[in-house]
Design a binder for these strands. Sequence first.
DNA 1: CTAGGGTTAG
Length: 712
Amino acid sequence: MASAPFLPPDPPHLRTGQDRIPPARPASFARIPSWVSLNRPSSVKPPHPTTTQHGQVENLHLVSLSKQGKFEQVHEFIKSMDEAGIAVSPSTYKSLFETCGEMGLLSEGRSIRGRLKNPPGFLEDCALRMYCHCGSLSDARRLFDEMPERSSFAWGIMISGYAQRGVLDKAFQLFSLLMDSGVGPNFSVYTSLLRSLVDSSCLEIGRQMHSHLIKTGSGLNASVGMAICNMYVKCGWLEGARIVFDEMAEKKAVAWTALMVGYTEANEQNDVLHLFMKMVEEGVELDEFVFSIVLKACAWLEDLRVGRQIHGHIVKLGLESDVSVGTPLVNLYVKCTCFESALLAFQKIDNPNDVSWSALISGYSQSGRVEECLKTYKSLRVMDGLLNSFIYTSIFQACSMLADINSGAQAHADAIKRGLISPLYGESALITMYSKCGNMDYASQVFGSISEPDTIAWTAIIAGYAYHGIASEALGYFRKMQDSGVRPNGVTLVAVLTACSHSSLITEAEGYLKSMNRCWNHRNLELGRIASENLLRLNPDDTAGYILLFNLCVSHEKWEEAARIRKKMMEKNLQKEVSCSWITVRGQWHRFIVGDRHHPQTKEIYAKLKQIDFPDGDSEDRSLLTEEDASCILPERRQQLLEHSERLAIAFGLLSSPSNSPVLIFKNLRACRDCHDFAKHVSRVAEREIVIRDSSRFHHFKLGQCSCGDYW
DNA sequence: CTAGGGTTAG
């Protein structure tokens, strides 16, 4: 082997069995694998035994090795070529530099550059580009400074190198040197400089570039115009972008899209729609980019009417199946809470990608279709490349709705293995998931792993402890948050107030809470009517607005008014959420609704309820009526009270779990007072710890007492 | 040279 310098030193994939390569013989073409000739420019004729020039095969082999990243072999092969007196050709060097640049192999690139004595100018440019691609601006600059003469390419490469890495001062310094040097700049210098101006801090220098271009008149072609417009968009100066845009001679869809992106980011969604209408009027050819951005604007505005019109346009153009159009369409319908339309739009997509799937999955979780959400996720797990960190964030959310620690922890572990936990987004969702599943240890572990928690992450952990009624921890985190300099928002304060309701550690917060409480305690019907009137004017379909007013009327014994409100809800087809409770026993789900008799152990469950023999509740305090309580006021509903879902779940829990373990129940709505009393009673007579997580918090019942202190 | 998906509470 060593005596055959032109042959691959180590081509294991060529060897079959004991097949050996004959020594000391020029390359056998039968043994040159097909990939040698791959990716050759068409101008280069494929080698042929009879017409091959000296060294051509070896050079080809070298290129091929480098493209496979086998640089150890590249060096060995170069050495053997040297020994055999075969030259490495300039085009091979060019290719080697390109590969090193693409793969970021700086030291390989350096050593190859080191072999060159007096290389031709174009090869120096290639080496320069290689250094820039590898991110070594110092190597690049050294080479640039040593060049006896610099082409306009070299200037462009060096300036772009600085610009792309955000070293703006050096980029512009060099640019002014170039202006003085007498070498005319090419367009790519301008566009790469403009492209490097990416935020509002660059606006001033961007304006200077713009005026320079106008003065010299050197670069006012379409692509430079586009670059200026984009620069102004990124720098947040939409007026400037608009002026440049209006002056463009020929406006293709790209230019419109760039400006629309600016408007969406500035949250000027109506301007996006106006631009779109103008495009349609002017007959601009619409592409998938235009639709994706205009659909995003509709989603923001939750404007279903316009959204459906645009959908119609998309269908006419036959773009419905395009993944770039179909995906934002799915999202539009999700945001407008039209889940059926979202699903239909998804089904029309030809090749849904991970973004499409994440739009669908987040739609499932946002519309509470938790089981479909998890089912879809599981089906994606066995496919390649369709899961991403967005999907996992939605999955964590779904698991917190289910309060299913098993699925949740599994998804968490899975996401860790795949490296798909999104910083802050996924982490905050995990904190909430573990909190809602009742495991504050895990929740705080996740929080502790975040290097720089933002407002939302802090809020998530505070809300978690508040949810569990552990005020001291919640307030401790709130103090730490303030110390860290992260600003709380309205949501944070709601969480803090929730925590405060069990503590007088922050007198101000307590006072605030008390003042809010007094309004409810006064049971001011007149004020309540005005408030709900306004609330319902904002959103006529808001169930909570009706329910609150209904409860208020009930507490004032205004039965007829209460009935009218109910009737109105029925007319508008607004349904209150069906109350249900669930429990997991040995990994199995058991779900109950009021008066449920579907469970296979129904007989035993009702027998157990009877055995507990809790007296029919007659709570005199109607100020804390929940939605369910209110319906219990009506005599025919009173019987139902005895069969509320959480009672069924508790009874089943007592029957089916070991007598020394706590019974953990989940409920989708707030616990009613009678059932709360029932749970206290059970915890005393059965001497069992009972934990109920309702829609607002955790309740830990022990020996007739509840951790919530009867406040929830 | 332009696009689409996800986080906290009541």
